[in-house]
């Protein structure tokens, strides 16, 4: 799950979470250039793939790696 409100997601027991940058745009970041935002979106999905490929037993946060940092 890509979401911004991790405490709530954790409280209701979401197993795999990827933190995002804002409530209104879970798969984006309007502060970036179009190109960088697209790259950020892909980073979120790459992180989500790591999450779904990982065994978890409780709510677990998968933080996008440093490669995902804002480049613009």
């Amino acid at each position: 799950m890509l979401c911004n409100l991790l405490p709530i997601a954790t409280r209701v027991g979401a197993p795999r979470m990827v933190p995002t940058r804002g409530i209104p745009y879970p798969a984006g970041d309007p502060s970036l250039s179009q190109e960088d935002e697209r790259a950020w979106r892909r980073t979120l999905l790459e992180t989500a793939l790591v999450a779904v490929s990982t065994h978890v037993t409780q709510p677990t946060v998968f933080t996008p790696g440093p490669a995902a940092a804002k480049s613009g």
Binding site: P24, G28, L44, L45
Partner: peptide
């Protein structure tokens, strides 16, 4: 929530463009 950002680019809610790329 304000849907301004979502409506400017709906892929910000449903990341289809990046998913197709992958």
């Amino acid at each position: 929530f304000s849907t301004v950002a979502a409506n400017a680019d709906p892929n910000r809610i449903l990341p289809l463009d990046a998913a197709r790329e992958m």
